[in-house]
């Protein structure tokens, strides 16, 4: 699973998820991509599930690019714990995804294969997504 090698603070504020993506909303490496249409925190587990779904669907063909990185720590309190006694401990990492953000890109495969792989990946995500391709591909 993806996670930062080191972090500055273990407990940080959460983002407000307002507006659309200002960057990372156009294809940069591949010919096909999966674009987020809703704002959400995407966990490293979900990213890993997508990656596995894509690599199994592509059968080791082509190249996959992950355009998001879970760099935000999220804390949680243990089960059956009363409120108070300070903030919980580090639990997992999330990537902040805003509408328009391209999360995955694929290069070196046909459109049908890329579409199917990204369709399978989209089922692992808690948001609506859309398949996009470079404009100069027929």
């Amino acid at each position: 699973m993806l996670e930062p090698k080191r972090i500055h603070r273990r407990r940080v504020h959460r983002d407000k998820l307002r507006g659309n993506a200002n960057r990372g909303h156009q294809l940069a490496f591949g010919s096909f991509g999966l674009k987020a249409l809703e704002p959400k925190f995407i966990t490293s587990r979900q990213i890993e599930a997508c990656r596995v779904a894509i690599s199994r669907s592509l059968q080791r063909e082509g190249k996959t690019f992950i355009r998001i990185f879970p760099d935000r720590p999220i804390t949680s309190k243990p089960a059956e714990t009363r409120m108070g006694k300070g903030k919980g401990t580090l639990d997992h990492f999330i990537a902040v995804v805003k509408p328009g953000r391209i999360m995955f890109e694929i290069a070196g495969v046909t459109e049908e294969k890329a579409k199917e792989a990204l369709r399978r990946a989209s089922h692992k995500l808690p948001i609506k997504t859309k398949f996009i391709k470079r404009r100069d591909i027929g």
């Binding site: 990372g24 940069a28 690599s55 996959t64």
Partner: peptide, 20 residues
């Protein structure tokens, strides 16, 4: 296979981040 691919995935992400 999944274990072997893990290293590769992080490489890809690093490449992507670097280029971005």
């Amino acid at each position: 296979l999944v274990g072997a691919e893990e290293g590769e995935a992080s490489e890809e992400t690093a490449d992507a981040a670097e280029a971005a």
